[in-house]
Every structure is written in structure tokens, then in C-alpha cells.
Amino acid sequence: MENKIVELQQVDKAYRMGRHEFLALKKVNLVIEKGEFCGLVGPSGSGKTTLLNIVGTLDTPTAGRAMVLNHGLENLTHRQAARLRSRYIGFIFQTFNLLPVYTVYENVEFPLLLLGRPEPERHKMVMEALESVHLLDKLDNRPAQLSGGESQRVAIARSIVKKPQLVLADEPTANLDAENSHHILRIMRELNSRYNITFLFSTHDEKVISYLRRKISLVDGRIVSDEHLRPEENHATASDL
């Protein structure tokens, strides 16, 4: 029980669209344990991102019970949710969402600034994170000077720099070519193994799916299957790169 990072019970999420209500999630039950490398898989509009947002405390369920890192989302204030995100949850987005006026170093440093970590500790952690995504040579670059793959690696470094318990990645390979996609997926799998960080993806990309150890399929807001996989053996590990 202590290994449970996420526990959803009968979670509904409804959106009001004009006079009508659209049910994005229907009676979702899900448990994710520490150290998992799993993905929410399904077509567009199946509720993947909605579920990811709820797990990331960016949104709240309309009904049901959601526990994330031992916090019930129903009673969480905005401030408590923000604190939870800043300490324990990392995000990776399809469009990278790097802060455009900051350098690579500053982007990765930002979550540590929010946590009030002292400068020497910040420096050590930022360098370690950037080393793990192989970007030590781009410290002073701005996001506009990076390729898509490099930008996503910065986003990964930013998400793991504070050693979170959970990293949520929303379509992380959607804007990347095949080579870069495999590259960042290997890095994430390596980080998962090295730091035991739980990764939860939202994707319909077969490349991502091939790396997952657990595939949760969603259709029309419902979980239709939940499979434990054996990731393809032909994927190289990050240490091989």
C-alpha cells in the first residue's frame, strides 16, 4: 500500500460545453505504484490528457476519489496543490514549454529556485540533471537556439532536477522525429531505473508504447485495458548513447 503513488476510484470528469455536459472521464479506477514506467494510451479525445492533468493536480475530478502522493485532491487548496507539484511532481509537455527568456541552465534551475534550495546545491543538481540528458554543452543557450530534441531534453532535465516522485509526460514525442524520440525515451527509461522515478505518459505514439512496462488504454473516457508489458529488448539504454 505504501508504494501507491496514485489511486483513483470511480473518478468522473465533466466539462460544460454550452448547455451540454461532456464527460471526459467515466468511473476511472487506477492505481500506479512507485517506480512504474507506464502510459495512458488511446486516440484523441479518449481522456488521456484529462487524466494526466488530474494526476498532476492541475485539475480536479468532478466525482469520485483521487489520491495523489497521499493527498486527496477533493480537499486540496490551490496553494496545497501548487506545493505538491513544486515538490513531488515533474511535467513534460508536447510543446516543451520552456521559459523562453531563460538559458538552458536557468530553465532547469527554476524548480529548485521555487523550492528555495541554496545556490551550491542548485548548481550541483542542475549539472547532474543536464548531464543525464547529455546537454552540458548547451548551458548558456536559449530555447530558441535549441533543436526540438534538445528542447525536450531540457524539459526532461527540468522535470527530474528536483528528484520528484512522479513525472507526467503529455505526448512527449509528438513534436520529435523518430531518432530524437528514441533518444529521449531511452533517457527517461534510464532515469526511471537510476532514480526510481515514476513516469506516467499520455501518448498514442507506438514508439513510446514500445518502451512502456505498463499500458493503460482509454477509450471514450473509460479504461478499457490495463496490460503489463515487457519492453522491447532492442531498445538501447541511455548509458549506450
Partner: peptide, 16 residues
Amino acid sequence: RKEIGMLMALGMTRGQ
């Protein structure tokens, strides 16, 4: 605005 959303995702409160 996306940056604002990102800042919130990173843990900043609305007030901040």
C-alpha cells in the same frame, strides 16, 4: 499565457 500555465505546473501559486 502558456508560460503562466507552465509556472503554475512547476509549482507557483496564482498569487505568486
